[in-house]
């Protein structure tokens, strides 16, 4: 299927999005923004799956379903992560990731 846009473009877009997420994960200090970075990363992976599916194996639906399941996993991950964040907030009265270092040596 020719949409006029090569596959490579999708992949480059996804790579940029992915590493934007990684940058956010590394620099952000607020746990919720870190969670947002993770969502970015997951979304970029989804774009990859869908693009591969459409361009390389249009007769199958593997990538389609995989991204569907990734969305479901992302949803449950977000729910649990937020629960953990709220619990951390309750215990340390902060959600700054640098202050949560009880597990150091």
């Amino acid at each position: 299927m020719n949409t006029g846009v090569p596959l490579i473009y999708f992949l480059i877009l996804a790579a940029i999005m992915f590493f934007a997420g990684v940058y956010g994960f590394l620099t952000r200090r607020n746990l919720i923004t870190i969670l947002m970075s993770v969502e970015l990363i997951l979304n970029s992976v989804n774009i990859n799956f869908v693009a591969y599916n459409r361009y390389l194996y249009p007769h199958k639906l593997e990538g389609f379903f995989f991204s569907l399941f990734v969305i479901a996993v992302a949803a449950s991950e977000a729910a649990v992560a937020i629960a953990i964040i709220i619990n951390i907030y309750r215990r340390f009265t902060t959600i700054n990731v640098e202050d949560v270092d009880t597990m150091r040596y």
Partner: peptide, 18 residues
Amino acid sequence: LYAGGIVVLIIFSILLTS
């Protein structure tokens, strides 16, 4: 799911903690 559910969840938790 994503735009509607997860982002709303995130915004809720922001309101709760920040």
